[in-house]
């Protein structure tokens, strides 16, 4: 057990280091501009006074490391500064929307993970059958579809007939059941986009193991194919499966941006797109940091879980 905690501790430190580097990149990106941010934002016709005022407001007169320090310590305490476009504190803008986006991502994960694992096991069980070939072609196809294409097909098919709403209006008063109902189409879109890849990788991970001697042994004992796969192959295939699940959940984080815009879902992605349009750099930095942190966290969890499921990885010589 001590090994596990030690390993988790080390991974956590590594994750924090990654996050630190990411925050430097996100903050430092503004330093790439040839001129300064104030001129870039206000355009060439801005007068010296307005430029000076904006520089003062953004704190651009301080040296970069000092500004970074203020930004980082603020961000850790949940204070991301003030949005330039709306003049509101960014924490207020982000707060409610973060919950909505998390809800959507979790919803999509809850639909897609069991679905893709079940389909992957089925494809491995009936490999080279019509089902397997069809699922392969479908997987390649759905990976190639842009999210908005899938989304609009679903709108045309399911929202046109009035089954589900094509726009999501969530207020704090919305009940959980209503939320599930209203967010069904966005969640289904995300599910369709990520399921194919997870399913293919699950199938590949299981099939890789099927040539092993212990699988042959289990077969020779007279076990049913389903039992062989579930009892002997899946536990050993867990590490790669967990990794690919984490990878796709991380993909969900960026996938929500487009899907939220299609369904007018009040989440972080929508806020980020608006902020990019208005060049509201402080908001974009804050959201980028949140998304990147979630990405790092997911990879960290996957790392730990896949190590825990494989005893051999824990006792390295």
């Amino acid at each position: 057990m001590r090994d596990i905690w030690g390993m988790i501790g080390r991974r956590l430190l590594l994750g924090l280091l990654t996050l630190f580097v990411i925050s430097v990149v996100i903050f430092g990106a503004t330093e790439l501009l040839p001129g300064d941010l104030a001129r870039e934002l206000l355009g060439q016709s801005a007068t010296e006074e307005t430029l000076a005022a904006l520089r003062d407001q953004l704190g651009l007169n301080d040296p970069a490391p000092l500004r970074y320090w203020h930004w980082l310590t603020g961000a850790i305490q949940g204070d991301f500064g003030v949005s330039m476009a709306t003049k509101k504190p960014i924490a207020d803008l982000v707060g409610a929307r973060l919950g909505n986006t998390l809800f959507l991502a979790l919803y999509a994960a809850a639909l897609s993970v069991p679905l893709s694992l079940a389909l992957g096991v089925m494809a491995a069980l009936w490999r080279n059958s019509v089902f397997d070939r069809a699922s392969n072609a479908l997987a390649l196809t759905s990976i190639s579809f842009p999210e908005f294409f899938v989304a609009y097909i679903l709108v045309l098919w399911l929202a046109q007939s009035g089954l589900f709403p094509s726009m999501v209006r969530i207020t704090p008063a919305t009940t959980f059941g209503d939320r599930l109902y209203m967010a069904f189409l966005p969640a289904l879109t995300l599910t369709l986009v990520v399921t194919a890849h997870m399913m293919r990788m699950t199938r590949a991970a299981i099939i890789n193991l099927l040539a092993s001697p212990y699988i042959e042994m289990a077969r020779l004992k007279g076990m049913s194919p389903l039992r062989v796969v579930l009892r002997h192959a899946v536990p050993n295939a867990l590490a790669p499966i967990i990794n690919v699940v984490a990878l796709n959940l991380a993909y969900l984080i960026t996938g929500v941006v487009v899907v939220e815009v299609v369904f007018v879902y009040p989440g972080l992605g929508q806020l980020m797109v608006d902020a990019v349009t208005n060049r509201d750099i402080a908001v974009v930095q804050a959201i980028a940091l949140i998304f990147a942190a979630a990405y790092v966290l997911l990879n960290l969890i996957a790392d730990v879980l896949s190590t825990v499921t494989n005893p051999r990885l824990m006792h390295r010589r």
């Binding site: 990411i22 870039e40 960026t254």
Partner: peptide, 17 residues
């Protein structure tokens, strides 16, 4: 370490679209 779409959005904010 930063998701591709997020990084592109950040860079597009800075350099304009």
């Amino acid at each position: 370490a930063i998701p591709a779409l997020i990084l592109s959005l950040l860079l597009l904010t800075i350099f304009g679209t």
